[in-house]
Design a protein around this nucleic acid. Structure first.
Lengths: 179, 179
DNA sequence: GTTTGCGTTCGAGCGCGCTCGAAGGCCTAG
DNA sequence: CTAGGCCTTCGAGCGCGCTCGAACGCAAAC
């Protein structure tokens, strides 16, 4: 993209921000509110996903879940913690297949730690890139809002015209379904 | 999610960051490097999308593009600016249908400005939420990297154990294809 | 004059990540 | 005894956003 350099510049305002304080991050693991065992809907509510999705993750091999006498899933703290990790990684954009690969590395033992680290580092960089992109879009959107409203935006007359040209291009009603 | 409050807290470190400087944002519009007319591959290269995608956007009604004598697409500066806007919005996660709706509002005239503003504001909030989520994931990932490596991470012994439990849960080879 | 290389239209197909529906089991309440 | 409700498995379907292939056209290069 032609705006890559601008992305970098714009994001310097926000900063590369190193890791947050250990205390805060430690709490992020949610170790506190994980009961010994939970049923599927409880976990679903906790993680804000559907039971369908939890079964899907299990089918995909991302987590092992025991069954009770009725064949119902019983999530122990370990499974829930795994799912906290999985959902957080999903939320941050890690693909299912990458998550599957990561989990397979965990299965494979300690000697895969370097490769796991590689994956995490790469994912970290991906997240950072994504944050930069979003910050740029955010800035552009905020600017657009400001000039549209004309209340807080400076130079609405001059800047606004140039910007809005990209938006006010006439289009007739020929918008159609695709597929 | 159970970590919503933590998200808010964690993100205070980074701040709500108001709009960037007008000068920087003005440059984001890329008004400078937009020639009078471009062919499809030029535009594709500029925006870092495929010609297929550009035709798709046109089919979807997001932009109107003229043709030359050979029936080839000719993108004028207006179309290119529109596509800059479209791709930026797509990159920031705005759905195709929302973009289609937005464009239809632009077509409909000045009286739709309030609704356009509503859309932009809502989208701005979506981006902000997304950035918060990503920042949280970033912090968690960075923490995980630090404790894995054990080089810079403090309390690796105590904290590391609790955290890694979510990752080191054994899983056998029953990972299977889905779908 | 044919080959190369770019473009066109159109409809179909794909990969991802769910999301759902059918068919059935167990348990509890009324 | 039966109805409701929540669970199970399994395979199929869906919505999104592309992505591609087929069949073709023009135009410059060899």
């Amino acid at each position: 993209m032609a705006t890559d350099d601008l992305m970098s510049r714009a994001l310097e305002t926000i900063g590369e921000d190193g890791p947050l304080s250990v205390e805060v991050i430690h709490r992020l693991t949610d170790l506190a509110d994980v009961p010994d065992s939970m049923m599927i809907t409880e976990v679903a509510d906790l993680l804000d996903v559907s039971p369908h999705t939890l079964r899907y993750y299990e089918r995909a091999g991302l987590v092992e879940v025991a069954r009770d006498g009725n064949g119902h899933r019983v999530y122990d703290a370990r499974a829930v913690r795994r799912l906290v990790f999985v959902t957080r990684m999903r939320l941050s954009g890690m693909a299912m297949r990458d998550l599957q690969h990561y989990v397979s590395l965990v299965d494979a033992g300690e000697q895969t730690v370097p490769e796991r680290l590689d994956m995490l580092v790469e994912h970290r960089d991906t997240i950072r890139r994504r944050i930069r992109e979003l910050s740029l879009s955010l800035a552009a959107t905020e600017y657009k809002i400001a000039t549209y409203g004309g209340e807080t935006g400076p130079d609405v007359q001059t800047l606004g015209t140039g910007l809005d040209a990209g938006l006010d291009t006439g289009l007739d009603q020929r918008r159609r379904r695709i597929g």
